[in-house]
Design a protein around this nucleic acid. Structure first.
Lengths: 324, 324
DNA sequence: GTGAAAGCGCTAACAA
DNA sequence: TTGTTAGCGCTTTCAC
């Protein structure tokens, strides 16, 4: 049988209340008594039941985290940041994946209602409808769309794209072609305007844009089409690394040397980016920092702070490898 | 205020016990009463408090998972398998990382004692000492060492290495060089003997072994040394993909064509393996399946089944790309 | 400084 | 079939 607070109280010849006081460092306990209680606790290896404490206090010291799936590498990075902060602060992390669409959401929402956790972190949630009724403190990590009313953390896509542009400009490239991500995503918009603005500011016209699509095949197709067309371009900026890798494939097939003839810059700093030939120059996300920032913010909300009204934007940075 | 079972009982004009019976589908409730209760539940959006249920039942419907860190890609894959099974069975997943060594373990152990979860899954745990006192059902996923007394799930490293050997043998390669992983690891031993045995069975001597070490640099160094030495070899088997990538680097520098002159096979099927040039032929782990298997096993233990006495070994497979 | 008692929201005998 | 009564293991007034 597990040792309970009652057992500790009995052995220390005090009441449960006093044990509780010692447990929670509520002064107002005689030093000698405290020592006696602590001795019993040490001797029995007593640990308060998290469930009972949660029930009595109304707070579980647990944070729920909803992720879109665990196979994409950046999710692990963000999650590590979340776990670091949570573990340092003594919070437990309840993980849920949204791999089964609406079902997942329903299930997660049930947990919310079940008061399983004190607050929640949502990574690119498929929907936020279920939040309209809940009052649980929430922080969202997402750069695909705005979530008005919810504290949000996102990478600085705009500045990241500017970094890419300035790097190409510094190399004397005046007519880049841009392979974009899915339209309508805030992320795509930001990367697009960040890049374009930098070129405008340097006195150049709007770079040529073509739609890519998150896969190596899409990047390959886009560049093949670009080469077949008459559109001149002296460099490439892809909105994501996979597309950039596809672009690299197409350039290799066409025997166009990278970066000498056409420098290429990607976005995301996927693990694979470091291992291509030539290795991909790209813009890195502050994935782990996003997790940390979002979690720190959430814990502040739990402590009673009021949510920031503007998104928390974290800096991206340029990783120079061999393609640009 | 949250709606509680008492509130539902009041509105449906029944006792809490009856609501509880309806909630848990304990027949023995009049159909009409049940309908009335369900209506109130639907109308109020009532969800039982997980904490209270856990306290009353003595089971939390939660499984604790300890991972060595979330940045390594296979961890995410395993975890996805775990999450899939857990979510399908209505269990919650409490995640903990062991990035801070002994500290992490202590913290995790505390959760165990706090009865936070019904069972636990350990991914390559840094130590299992803390388990000696606990009685919580446990399943370990690990191929670095044996954990006698604990149900274990691991990939079939032996058979995987044999697959690699047979592939090279089929290509007529009789004198491969093997770049091993860290010595003393069960995994290293298994990959080594699996490969060697296949060569022995084919009537060839024991392949030349050199120690590698999980990094690209180590692979590069190993092959550079191999080339400088007089040791002849007609193919390479690396115990992990990163080492294989380093080997590829060294071969490229030496202008030795892959796979024509020297075919190369790695192990792990890291995300990067698909994106190198030439793309790496390698042995893939059943990462996700390991997560699923381990979780299914754990849930069976929770249901009262007795633990299997032998490790659950899951099949690896050969992924043929361009290097062999 | 300490204890008694009530209560957190549920389940599970035991009666009726 | 249903309600009553105890808990589950803790925290937290409120007395003393």
């Amino acid at each position: 049988m597990r040792v309970t607070i009652a057992e500790v109280a009995r052995r220390a010849r005090v009441s449960k209340a006093t044990v509780s006081r010692v447990l929670n460092d509520r002064g107002e306990v005689d030093a000698a008594t405290a020592v006696r209680v602590r001795d019993v606790i040490a001797a029995t290896g007593y640990t308060p039941s998290a469930g009972a404490v949660g029930l009595a206090r109304g707070r579980t010291q647990t944070v729920g985290v909803l992720v879109p799936g665990l196979t994409r590498p950046w999710v692990g990075d963000v999650l590590q940041g979340v776990a670091d902060v949570l573990e340092a602060r003594g919070y437990a992390l309840l993980l849920h994946t949204a791999t089964r669409g609406a079902d997942s959401i329903t299930q997660f929402a049930r947990q919310v209602n079940a008061n399983t956790f004190d607050g929640q972190l949502l990574l690119e949630p498929p929907s936020t409808d279920f939040l309209r009724t809940a009052t649980t403190p929430t922080v969202i990590i997402d750069d695909r769309a705005h979530h008005p009313g919810f504290p949000t953390v996102a990478p600085d896509n705009r500045a990241g794209a500017e970094l890419a542009a300035r790097h190409l400009l510094a190399a004397g490239r005046t007519t880049p072609a841009v392979i974009t991500g899915p339209p309508r995503l805030t992320r795509t918009h930001d990367r697009s305007t960040g890049f374009t603005d930098a070129y405008h500011r340097a006195g150049h016209p709007t770079p040529h844009h073509v739609e890519g699509g998150l896969t190596r095949e899409a990047g390959h197709a886009a560049v093949t089409a670009l080469l077949a067309a008459t559109t001149p371009f002296d460099s490439l900026f892809a909105h994501d690394d996979l597309t950039a890798l596809g672009a690299l494939d197409a350039l290799r097939e066409a025997r166009i040397p990278v970066p000498t003839a056409i420098p290429v810059i990607g976005f995301d700093d996927t693990p694979a980016a470091a291992h291509t030939h030539p290795a991909l120059t790209t813009i890195a996300h502050p994935a782990r920092e996003m997790g940390e920032t979002a979690t720190t913010l959430l814990l502040r909300l739990l402590a009673g702070d009021k949510p920031p009204t503007t998104p928390q934007i974290l800096p991206t940075h340029l990783v120079i490898r061999e393609t640009a």
